[in-house]
Design a protein around this nucleic acid. Sequence first.
DNA 1: ACCTGAACACCGTTCAAGT
DNA 2: ACCTGAACACCGTTCAAGT
Lengths: 236, 236
Amino acid sequence: MAQQTEPVRRTPLTRDRVLRAAVALADETGIEALSMRKLAQELGVVPMALYKHVANKEQLLDGMVDVVMSEIDPPAPGADWQGAVRRRVLSARRAFLGHPWAAQVLQSRTSPTPVVLAYMDSVIGMFRTGGFSVDLTHHVMHALGSRMMGITQELFDASPNPDPRPGSAAPQEDAGQFPYVTELAGAVAHDAGSVVGQGCDDQFEFEFALNLLLDGFERLRQQGWSSASRSRDNGR
Amino acid sequence: MAQQTEPVRRTPLTRDRVLRAAVALADETGIEALSMRKLAQELGVVPMALYKHVANKEQLLDGMVDVVMSEIDPPAPGADWQGAVRRRVLSARRAFLGHPWAAQVLQSRTSPTPVVLAYMDSVIGMFRTGGFSVDLTHHVMHALGSRMMGITQELFDASPNPDPRPGSAAPQEDAGQFPYVTELAGAVAHDAGSVVGQGCDDQFEFEFALNLLLDGFERLRQQGWSSASRSRDNGR
DNA sequence: ACCTGAACACCGTTCAAGT
DNA sequence: ACCTGAACACCGTTCAAGT
């Protein structure tokens, strides 16, 4: 008799709704807790229903990255190439920082989606119209690597394992074993001022490295560097 | 009657044997195919037996990274700081390139093992004895990031999806949509000479970026850069 | 033709029952 | 006390059976 045993789902499932729900779920519970089954449950749907909108989990992850990419500001016209690239990269960074899982997921993709390609195209275009040769642009894009997307794989922390539990193993043993690490960690913790524990300003570190690279690029451009001069070791 | 239903396993299971088997298995079958169960089977042992030597899979992965790290050459004495750092980083790179899974696994670790800390300590030491302040050394280590370990997250490829299947979708559609990407990809493929497909020299790209950074570091050191001069934007 | 419950072939890890 | 088979609580995805 009851045609519908469940309340009617008025908003039908679409690829877009699936992707947005996945992003929200990953934001809330972390990427490792995101499964096709949990996502389906969140949407009030049987797991198999998702497969009509995404071919498999890999495609789901691709789509989730695209959602994050859509939050990047469009490129602003004018300005020198350095300013343009820096602004675009920092805007991408803002988008990715809003979704802690996104950097890791992007790095796990095996090939870029059209949305990612479009972003890369715009960055490459900034170098080309800024006077970089195709050759130099190629190497410069490699040198930027994932920093082009505003992200860096932070490799733990410069300050190793800031385990907040007191009395955890060997604080002075480490001091003897790894004197330079200890010196650095100490200085960073001190530098942070009031609250110890956090330590260092990721945004500053990112911009420091970005500026260093962009300045290096400009120097090579001015020199008319080309890879034919490989033996000259970057002109050094 | 038969006390032993299986042939006697003369070499008893040790942490070391577990780790070496795991490295070998990952080398052969890829990291995604490495499971506790498959590893146990490879060792002719019940899965649970592994848990006496590693607490869980995370610890197994930590140990596997340490095995790779053990293949890095010890630091050679003498030489300027740039030569010392470059040689050490390139040696680490050689070790990691020998195990295609290793970079990804290292990046997935949440805190460094003592072996990794020791490596970092030696690199930090090279900057410090080379005349870098604690402050500058800190930022410089961040700027190096995973490149300190000789690895870079390559973010797909500069040349997008070199799908070797002919007739795959839209070669000229892309050319219109992403003109700069297309230009770059074309130049790279051409540059590679005889065989199209591979495209570009990862080792050259790595050294290009490394040298660019090391030169930037040296310039800042000479200037006596300190983070107190944050507003000066890396002295630009 | 569409939809989906059950099943398949896995996981990492726990735990109680065996020796 | 040690060891381990079976079980638990998951996965992503296939597929045949239902409507």
